[in-house]
């Protein structure tokens, strides 16, 4: 598998993330990200396909908040 270089990823950052990162800074961030990704990878292994997220869209919420407007 061909891996994307830091410099190429840095070029794409403004489009993907909306932020400019120098390639050196990207390397630092990737290093910091490793431990966090280990934990997120564990989370990904859970099969929660049928569990709705705890944050649920409520079409009336804003109307309730703005009832005194």
């Amino acid at each position: 598998m061909k891996k994307i270089s830091s410099s190429k990823l840095a070029e794409l950052c403004p489009q993907i993330f909306g932020v400019d990162f120098e390639s050196d800074r990207l390397d630092e961030l990737v290093s910091e990200l490793t431990g966090i990704l280990d934990e997120i990878t564990k989370l990904r292994k859970l099969d929660l396909s049928d569990v709705p997220p705890v944050v649920v869209f409520d079409a009336k919420a804003t109307y309730r908040e703005g009832q005194n407007d």
């Binding site: 569990v51 709705p52 997220p53 705890v54 944050v55």
Partner: peptide, 10 residues
Amino acid sequence: DYLKAEQFRR
């Protein structure tokens, strides 16, 4: 991953 975390919370 963000949404998975919100599923996890439930």
